[in-house]
Computed example of a mutant assay.
Amino acid sequence: MKVVIVEDEVAASENLAFMLKNIDDSIEILTVLDSVKASIAYFSKNHEAELIFMDIHLADGLSFEIFDSVKIESPVIFTTAYDQYALQAFKVNSIDYLLKPIDEDELAESLDQYKGQFKDKGLYTDQVKGLLNLISTKKNTYKSMYLVHHRDQLVPVKTENIAYLYIETGTVKAVTDDKQTYIMEQNLEDMENDLDPSIFFRINRQFIVKKDAIEGIKQYFNGKLIVGVTPPSPERIVVSRAKAPEFKNWMSQ
């Protein structure tokens, strides 16, 4: 099988290539493309790709933009780290996806699925446009307010006023811009799905942070980052080396 990888993180593309070869040593990696521009140039010409692995967020834009310029008929497996709203759209459109960090067993299952069912099924431009329409619709349905118990009252807390969310001893707490702390009934995973990913980012297993609440970013050892927020966090907020490129890209948007 001849494969093309569209991924702007070197470590991620190398890891994916390693796992693919480990699963099936007959797989040939034709090339790794690191941008929308490079992908358009490559797929505009005749190519031999039988399967494409495509990251959603590239340095110069969303990979969906590639389909505005070229028609890709090879099956595509999208990879994503946090686009929860897009995942439902993938399911509706029968487009496969893998969550980062990619699990090798799930990767093997995807390969088996495409070998058995989708080898000759192309991904056409109109399918992707339908996907984009679903994503655009979903963007308008993010949660705007939570009703939380505070002392003996029910208090409405607007999501736009939440600076960050974090887990403390198994309890999710929301800290607002005016330094108030509220105990939330939802778990962090559900709240991540509720929030607009252009505004909020899942830093790690413990924290979700609003972009406007970030006041500084420091380099840490081994490629990690430390994020400073306002109001100050009760614990240090660390971005892993693997997630640092994605975080930087999100901050730049």
Rank of each mutant, 00 (worst) to 15 (best):
L16T: 03
A17H: 13
A17I: 10
A17S: 14
A17T: 15
F18I: 10
M19K: 13
L20Y: 05
L20E: 01
N22V: 14
N22M: 08
I23G: 09
I27H: 01
E28A: 08
E28L: 04
I29S: 02
I29H: 01
V32W: 04
L33C: 05
V36L: 09
V36G: 01
A38F: 07
I40T: 07
Y42P: 00
K45E: 13
N46T: 11
N46M: 13
A49S: 10
E50V: 02
L51H: 03
M54V: 13
M54S: 08
D55G: 08
I56V: 13
I56T: 09
L58A: 02
L58Y: 11
L58W: 09
L58H: 04
D60V: 08
D60E: 11
F64D: 00
F64T: 01
E65P: 07
S69L: 05
S69P: 09
I72C: 04
E73A: 00
S74I: 01
V76T: 00
V76F: 03
F78I: 02
T79W: 05
T80P: 09
Y82F: 14
D83A: 02
D83H: 12
Y85H: 05
A86S: 00
A86M: 11
A86K: 00
L87A: 02
L87M: 13
Q88L: 04
Q88D: 10
F90Q: 04
F90W: 09
V92Y: 06
N93S: 06
S94E: 13
S94F: 12
I95S: 00
D96H: 13
Y97V: 01
L98C: 10
L99M: 12
L99N: 10
K100P: 02
I102H: 06
D103M: 07
E104K: 15
D105H: 10
E106W: 08
A108P: 14
A108Y: 11
E109N: 07
L111C: 12
L111H: 08
Q113V: 15
K115G: 06
K119R: 15
D120E: 12
K121F: 14
K121H: 07
G122L: 12
G122P: 07
G122K: 13
L123W: 02
Y124S: 15
T125R: 14
Q127V: 07
V128E: 03
